[in-house]
Every structure is written in structure tokens, then in C-alpha cells.
């Protein structure tokens, strides 16, 4: 049940609803329209970064992207610098941010797929370069760091009660789910992850597929960082750091297995909502960062063990 393509999201949504009910019982008012809209906003960011991990983990070879945090920061700072608070330049900022993300992703992908560097090492190393470069850039150039009013509006406002970030996420999620499960490219990605030798011998350009996976991850991470700048109001060093751990957690909970070959983004999106509700509940009952970290780690372990059991049964 939990292993099937619908069972996982259903289970995660059921858990989310259970958490919401518990929250309402413990703290009356936990389920309010405003509350839920706010949580969707937060979940949207987590969901975007979860997409990055979904794609690279599915590509196999111990895939992982530990540079999503650094790329998000890059996207935010570069975007903010270019738009310099003007609405007109917002689109330029967005394009530049995503372009930079794609570029870093390209380097990651080349290192992993062409040179054969383990993804963990490659993405960690590149993230330290990007972080270091950002320190230099920010210190020397003192670029503008404020989000334009338009971006703030996009990231903060709601449309008929639905936060517009959540709408953007829903759009991207729809495209992602279609691309990963209903397109030839998605199949190529998953088969490359599951068995790169068979995939290659069957005519897949496995190197290209893997490089594209890392580029996609970089592009989405940079977009996430750019939107995050609008949500927070300004870009700063370390903007995306918190998402490195959490993105991997939601991917694993959503049903992506580290062995590669599976890209169930529907599950990952539900996991992003679940974890957001969990965190907000924990925050609401005054649990600090410490408790959240512990619960994150334990939740991840529990889901890993469930998946392990399911894998062993088959």
C-alpha cells in the first residue's frame, strides 16, 4: 500500500490531517484559513527544494545535491543585485538567478557524470566554492539586497486566499510530475538511475540525462532562492542553508530511494506539506530548533526503515 504510487501520498496526507487535528486539539485555532495558507507558503519552498533532490537522487549513482543551499543563496543574492529593488528588473533578476543555478548544476553534473566524482563530494565541494564566492562578491560589491515590491507581492500575497507562491509551486509540481512520470525523459532518468548499464546499452545517453538532472536541480534551487528573497524581503548570505538537510528529508519521506530509479514527486510534495505542518506544530508547542532537528532525523530514520522493509519483502 505504502509502496504503490498512490498509497504513499495518501498516507502522508492522512498523517498531515492527523497532525492538523492534533494541533487543533492542543492549540485551538491551529486550523485556520490564514494558518493553512501560511503553511502552504512555507511548504512551497520546501517542496521546490525537495524537487531538486528528487531529480538527482532518481538519476542514481548515489545521487545527492548538497549544493542546493548555496545555489539558492546565489540565486537570491544575484537576483536581488540585478533587480535593485525595481519591479521592471525583476524578470531580469529571475532569469539571471535561474541561469546561474543552471550553470552551477552543469558543473555538478559534469563532475558527477563525466569525471565520476561521487555526488556527495562534488556538490559539497562546489557549494563551498559558491558560498566562498558569494562572501567575496557581497563584501566587495555591496550589491543591493532588497527584493523588488513586485517580487515581495508575488512571494507574499495571496490570490483568492491561496498564496501565490503555492500557486507557482503547484504549477511547477504539475509540470514536474508530468515530466517525471509521463514523459520519455522521465523514464530515461529513472531507468538510468535504476540500471545505468542496461539504460546505456538500450540507447540512453546516460551522461546527458544525469547532467540534465543536476542542471534541473540547480535551476529549481536558484528559483527557490529567488522566491525566498521575495518572501523574506531581502537576500543574505546563508539564505538557503536550512534547505540542504530538509530537502533530503522530504525526498526520502516522499518515497525517493537513495538507490535511484524512482522519482515520485507527488509523494515528495505531500511530504513537504507534512513536514511543514509538523514543524509548525512543534513550533506552536514551543519546541525549539533542537527538538525539530531530532524529530526530523528520527522521522527520516523511521521512513528509511519502512522503505527498507518494503524493499526486502519484494
Amino acid at each position: 500500500m505504502i509502496g504503490s504510487s498512490w498509497g504513499r501520498p495518501a498516507l502522508l496526507l492522512a498523517l498531515t490531517i492527523a497532525l492538523l487535528v492534533v494541533g487543533q486539539l492542543v492549540l485551538p485555532g491551529f486550523i485556520g484559513l490564514g494558518q493553512i495558507a501560511n503553511q502552504l507558503k512555507i511548504a512551497a519552498f520546501l517542496g521546490l527544494f525537495g524537487l531538486c533532490q528528487t531529480v538527482v537522487i532518481a538519476a542514481g549513482g548515489q545521487g545527492l545535491d548538497l549544493s542546493v543551499g548555496a545555489i539558492a543563496t546565489l540565486g537570491g543574492i544575484l537576483g536581488a543585485a540585478l533587480m535593485a529593488g525595481s519591479n521592471a528588473m525583476t524578470i531580469v533578476g529571475a532569469v539571471a538567478a535561474v541561469g546561474a543555478g543552471l550553470g552551477v548544476g552543469l558543473l555538478n553534473g559534469m563532475g558527477v557524470a563525466v569525471l565520476g566524482v561521487p555526488p556527495l563530494v562534488m556538490t559539497l565541494a562546489l557549494s563551498s566554492v559558491v558560498d566562498g564566492g558569494l562572501i567575496v562578491g557581497v563584501s566587495l560589491a555591496h550589491p543591493a539586497d532588497a527584493a523588488s515590491p513586485g517580487l515581495v507581492a508575488i512571494a507574499g500575497r495571496s490570490l483568492y486566499g491561496v498564496p501565490s507562491v503555492a500557486l507557482i509551486w503547484a504549477g511547477i509540481a504539475a509540470i514536474a510530475i508530468w515530466l517525471l512520470s509521463r514523459s520519455a525523459w522521465g523514464r530515461q532518468l529513472c531507468r538510468t538511475g535504476a540500471n545505468p548499464v542496461t539504460a546505456r546499452l538500450s540507447g540512453t545517453h546516460t551522461v546527458r540525462v544525469r547532467v540534465m538532472a543536476y542542471m534541473l536541480s540547480g535551476g529549481v534551487a536558484a528559483l527557490g532562492g529567488f522566491l525566498l528573497t521575495g518572501y523574506v524581503g531581502q537576500a543574505f548570505l546563508g539564505l538557503g542553508n536550512a534547505y540542504v538537510l530538509t530537502s533530503i528529508v522530504v525526498a526520502a519521506i516522499g518515497g525517493v530511494t537513495l538507490a535511484g530509479g524512482k522519482a515520485p514527486y507527488g509523494g515528495v510534495a505531500c511530504a513537504a506539506i507534512l513536514m511543514t505542518v509538523l514543524v509548525s506544530l512543534l513550533t506552536a508547542i514551543n519546541m525549539g530548533e533542537n527538538g525539530r532537528q531530532i524529530i526530523f532525523g528520527l522521522t527520516l530514520l523511521v521512513f528509511l526503515m519502512i522503505d527498507r522493509r518494503l524493499g526486502a519483502q519484494r
Binding site: 537513495l258 538507490a259 531530532i294 532525523g297 527520516l300 528509511l304 526503515m305
Partner: peptide, 13 residues
């Protein structure tokens, strides 16, 4: 469990 992600989880704990 794969050590890469499992120790990632215990690290959070």
C-alpha cells in the same frame, strides 16, 4: 540502511 543518508539522519539527531 544506506550509510550516506542514515548517518545524515542520525547527524540531525
Amino acid at each position: 540502511l544506506p550509510s550516506l543518508i542514515a548517518t545524515f539522519a542520525t547527524g540531525a539527531v
